[in-house]
Design a protein around this nucleic acid. Sequence first.
DNA 1: TTGTCGTCGACTGCCTACAGCATACATTCC
DNA 2: GGAATGTATGCTGTAGGCAGTCGACGACAA
Lengths: 242, 242
Amino acid sequence: MLANQGSTAKIVRPTTLRESVLERILELIIIGSLKPGQHLVENELADNLGVSRQPVREALQLLSGEGWVDLRPGHGAYVHSPTVEEADQLLAVRTLLETESARLAARNPDKTDISDLRDICNRGLAACVADDVDAAVAANSELHTAVVNMSGNRVLADLTSQVARRVRWYHTPVARHRGRASWEEHAALIDAIEAGDEDVAADIMRRHTEHTRQSYLESRAQHPVEEPPAPIRRRRPRAVSG
Amino acid sequence: MLANQGSTAKIVRPTTLRESVLERILELIIIGSLKPGQHLVENELADNLGVSRQPVREALQLLSGEGWVDLRPGHGAYVHSPTVEEADQLLAVRTLLETESARLAARNPDKTDISDLRDICNRGLAACVADDVDAAVAANSELHTAVVNMSGNRVLADLTSQVARRVRWYHTPVARHRGRASWEEHAALIDAIEAGDEDVAADIMRRHTEHTRQSYLESRAQHPVEEPPAPIRRRRPRAVSG
DNA sequence: TTGTCGTCGACTGCCTACAGCATACATTCC
DNA sequence: GGAATGTATGCTGTAGGCAGTCGACGACAA
């Protein structure tokens, strides 16, 4: 249905099918079309995406590696169900990783990088003032990514981005809760990095991410979890069964 | 060849084929039969393992998620090439993660867990005295795993085990470099956890893992890297040709 | 009514086969 | 002699299909 593949024109396939399938499924998970705990039936996805089961299967394998879906051998793939506890732990780990990133970034700051950071920060603040939530969220993750990359530790960067992507999943609904203050913290962080003050940079980052964690938990307390249901759900009502 | 698949008896398959394939390939990587940078031709693996390409492909996808192999779309899978730099970064991240684990473990120590730790520690020391390297290495990872699990943060535990497995890959050749001293540090760590002294526990763990890192780097300096070769290597010499 | 067993349906896991692509070698042209 | 192009080949990516397995539903008996 929503497949652009199979069209007559020989559209250059920019990437493999399984990758575009992966992106599509991931998007469906993030925006919530595929709900936590939901059983991902390969045939359905394949039909909806206009491909065969094979690329779907492979995309699911890859997604399981990033924690988005759980594979139950013999049962299939299920959208990972984020519990409050896990979200909290995830946010704690993110704090740990990003704090270290900030420290390392401050250890040997780079003029160009600093300049980039300030640009992003300004954009974010502007978006925040303009009440453009999407742009603010985008700038936010962009900035954090930039800091992590400045750490110079690729392993750390990879791990962090992996964790951060999942955090963002939980985080999105509460993104608007922290506006201006968040960007002031960012600005202070950049100052510390530029000054090469490891401890200050680390401290700011720690408090900053802890802040996020707190506001997440509070927001979660107000809007309690919607669904731990759908543990198995197989076989729809079934038709007449002639 | 070594396939038990396809045999007439309906042997209860304890797990899916792709999982056993995954384990087998991982083992081949760890013991070095499959060398870093080597191109993993699906057909070869499938033939050697006595299965079809499909489970091999899926196993490779899963392995890529854990960082053991690199997938190059359109080119296939290659055994991940561990550079010295990456190993160093990996060890740094491990230090970070395990230090936090130790801190959390000390935050609310559990009688039973402590007792388990001591058992493991004693076994490790005994193995060390008896010069049983394999047993010592096993006890070592067992102890670290136990500490991480005591942290109570599953996300942290998962991430750490993932990193630790890869660390162990690089680490094995130098495992013998640190013997007795390592186990004394372990004992001190357990004491600190039992006493509930977060800072001390964290500090011991940090120094402990940093020690490992240092000895790794030194050992690596003496035995320089063997292979960054085999970047592409396709198509064997080919027979007489016509 | 409740517990147990048999049957049915659906989905996954795996295999085979084909098409497209990328690389290496051989040939031809300058 | 060197470079560009044609050709061959191995590999990956994808499709389709079949069998095994798991869960659910319904029937039967206590």
